[in-house]
């Protein structure tokens, strides 16, 4: 099986601070990869570079389209990249307000991606939106409510529905459970896990929550000062951490 996304030799500095320093990784179809590390370790920068939102100073990100063609992400035109972000890719922001249109109803939010790729049948768009609300466990009767009337957890689920409606193969998630209370986090993680398995999604998820990473991810990358210091299967990395920083990270998780 060939990788959906490959990156090699990524480097980016913010002034004197290395945000990415020789990062390489591969994402395979249907695989969930978590990127963990402390604040400022370059996790979010890596996600932004991988998704084409930011340009690295060195290195290359290659994306494989459904037909098997390989594209260099940062050489794509803006129109092509935008289209990719709406069809084969998705991005879930930490703060749902960044990913949702707060003045547009839940149904409109889900329908936006469909309309952006050319759906022009109101009835079908609405039916699809209702179906996706149901899938993310929001009452379809609230299809015309504004996202501002939703709780934080519901907003996050709405953002996920809006992202998945065009059936992407690869989804980037930037701390999707950040800022939610623990029980809501658990529910959201459970839902993401079910959807990922259901749709065969590949996910790159950035998190500093080791428990979330253990629950969701097949593979784990540990980042520190812009470098991947350790990577491997999630259980292996968490049960038998090799790098001293990973050991510190695992040791500092509070046991419930």
């Amino acid at each position: 099986m060939s990788a959906l996304l490959e990156a090699s030799g990524l480097a980016l500095r913010f002034g004197a601070v290395p945000a990415l320093d020789g990062v390489a990784l591969e994402i395979f179809p249907g695989e969930v990869v978590a990127i963990v590390g402390e604040s400022g370790s370059g996790k979010t920068t890596l996600l932004r570079v991988l998704s084409g939102m930011m340009r690295p100073e060195a290195g290359e990100v290659r994306y494989r389209d459904p037909e098997g063609g390989l594209h260099v992400v940062h050489e794509m035109g803006e129109a092509e990249l935008r289209r990719l972000h709406r069809t084969d890719w998705g991005f879930v922001h930490q703060n749902p307000r960044d990913g949702l249109r707060m003045r547009v109803s839940a149904g409109g939010n889900i329908g936006e991606r469909l309309m952006a790729v050319g759906a022009r049948h109101y009835g079908n768009i609405r039916a699809e939106a209702a179906e996706w609300l149901r899938r993310v466990e929001i009452d379809p009767a609230r299809i015309d409510d504004m996202p501002a009337l939703f709780s934080g957890g519901m907003q996050q689920r709405l953002q996920i529905a809006r992202t998945l409606v065009t059936r992407p193969r690869l989804v980037f998630m930037d701390e999707p459970t950040g800022g939610l209370d623990v029980s809501v986090q658990a529910k959201l993680l459970d839902m993401i896990r079910a959807l990922v398995a259901d749709l065969g999604l590949a996910v790159v998820i950035v998190t500093h929550d080791i428990a979330a990473a253990r629950l969701l991810a097949h593979r784990l990358l540990v980042m520190r000062r812009g470098q991947v210091v350790e990577q491997g299967l999630t259980d292996r990395v968490l049960d038998d951490p090799q790098h001293e920083y990973t050991q510190l990270l695992v040791a500092s998780v509070l046991a419930a």
């Binding site: 129109a79 309309m115 952006a116 609405r126 299809i143």
Partner: peptide, 22 residues
């Protein structure tokens, strides 16, 4: 301007969708 350049007009249809829904 970017939306015009890319003929990216889904947003206008979102407005029409909202009108019909409401």
């Amino acid at each position: 301007k970017r939306m015009h350049a890319l003929a990216d007009y889904g947003l206008m249809h979102v407005k029409l969708y909202e009108d019909i829904a409401r």
